[in-house]
Computed example of a mutant assay.
Amino acid sequence: MKDKREPLKKPAHIAAVLRKAIAAYRDGGDGELVKVWELWEGAVGPAIAENTRAAAFRGNLLIVHVSSSTWIHHLHFLKPDLIATINRALGKPLVKEIKFKVGPL
């Protein structure tokens, strides 16, 4: 008979689970990028955060889901400032490029 799994002591926050999962499957620098999800609203502000979501990473590329093509157009003008703000919040220049695409928030 299989041994029963020990019950969890307390619920785990999803950010902690994702950080462990990414660290297990990606190199060290990518693990730090997970912090973007935690600091997204504070870094980009409430209006942008309401219409966007950091969705994925590919190396130094941050893929951001956006609510509409109008927002994509607007964010293209803000891209250099967003990259600088996100990197400042991360404490390191981990994001070199952002790609915006209409997707689920």
Rank of each mutant, 00 (worst) to 15 (best):
I83N: 05
D3I: 05
A16V: 05
D3T: 11
E50H: 12
G28Y: 05
L78T: 00
R26A: 15
R53S: 06
H13G: 01
A15M: 10
I14R: 09
E6L: 14
V17R: 14
A15F: 12
W71G: 02
T70H: 11
D27I: 02
V34Y: 03
I14M: 12
V36G: 00
A16M: 04
L105N: 06
R88A: 13
P93A: 08
T70E: 02
T52G: 02
D3H: 11
T70W: 06
I72V: 15
P7F: 03
F100K: 03
S67F: 05
A47S: 13
W40E: 06
L18S: 05
N60F: 08
A49N: 08
V34H: 02
E38H: 01
A55M: 08
W40T: 07
R19L: 09
H65N: 15
N60Y: 05
F100R: 04
Y25K: 12
L78Y: 06
G31Q: 09
H73F: 09
A89T: 10
P11F: 05
G28W: 01
D81V: 09
A24R: 14
L78W: 00
A55W: 14
A16Y: 08
K4C: 01
I14D: 10
V36E: 00
E97A: 10
D27H: 12
R88H: 10
E97N: 10
A49I: 07
K96D: 12
Y25G: 01
P93T: 07
V64W: 03
A43S: 15
L61F: 10
I14W: 14
A23I: 04
W37F: 15
K4P: 01
L39Y: 01
R19E: 10
K10Y: 08
H76Q: 14
L75A: 10
G103R: 03
D27W: 09
